[in-house]
């Protein structure tokens, strides 16, 4: 995988547009070229380039930092995604390829693109680029704990989105294994995207 491909992949998910991603990558590479003495030989060049890409994106499109997400939203219960049972989780995977079922995999980029930027970037840097929490925290300029929380929430939203899609496609049935009374569930953390949006715009 060349650095060019890596930057284009991450840039495309940040901008959600090929044309804008190409401009962003070009700016990033020129900045990297001009700043090449600041690169420490032997350190991770990919992480260094991705930091420049992220900063370039923020300076260019998001003067106020990455698109807001609700940082203090309801996240207390780590089992809040208990709405999805083991058999449903299995039905969403393809045992052969150990990836998502092909029909769901086709939707995964669209689902990713719907995440708030902070979550989307964390998920891309970790799940696609396989950078360490420490490298991600340096790129995103936030503590490791924040990286972990963004990753957790981003993945949960993504899973929710794919689950909804699986329901629409009839790959999984209605969730029977919730095992909690309806009243209890009603008060539970809302994890779907539209409620995040509402909260974000009210915040």
């Amino acid at each position: 995988m060349s650095h060019l491909t890596t930057l284009l992949a991450v840039g495309s998910r940040l901008t959600r547009s090929t044309a804008e991603a190409e401009d962003l990558v070009q700016d990033t590479l020129l900045k990297a070229l001009r700043a090449r003495e600041h690169f420490t030989p032997g350190s991770n060049m990919r992480a260094w380039l991705l930091r420049i890409l992220t900063n370039t994106f923020i300076n260019r499109y998001r003067r106020g930092g990455l698109e807001r997400s609700v940082l203090d939203g309801p996240d207390a219960d780590p089992l809040a995604d208990g709405w999805i049972g083991a058999s449903t989780m299995e039905a969403m995977r393809d045992p052969e390829s150990r990836a998502m079922r092909a029909l769901l995999e086709k939707e995964i980029v669209a689902a990713l693109d719907e995440l708030p930027e902070e979550f989307r970037l964390a998920v891309v840097l970790s799940d696609v680029e396989e950078l360490s929490y420490k490298e991600i925290s340096e790129i995103m300029g936030c503590p490791i704990g924040t990286v972990m929380s963004r990753l957790h929430r981003g993945r949960r939203l993504l899973k929710r989105r794919l689950y909804d899609h699986a329901r629409t496609l009839g790959i999984v049935g209605p969730e029977e294994e919730v095992g909690k009374p309806a009243q209890e569930r009603a008060g539970e953390a809302v994890v779907d995207l539209s409620s995040y949006r509402r909260k974000a715009s009210n915040a």
């Binding site: 060019l4 284009l8 070009q26 995964i108």
Partner: peptide, 29 residues
């Protein structure tokens, strides 16, 4: 855990499937 791994694998594949630099773009760079 297996679902987490499956999501990662699909993400990697699909994000890269959509991000191959074109010849024109490489020339421009």
């Amino acid at each position: 855990l297996q679902l987490e791994h499956a999501m990662k694998k699909s993400l990697r594949r699909q994000v890269y499937a959509e991000a191959q630099p074109s010849e024109a773009f490489q020339d421009r760079i």
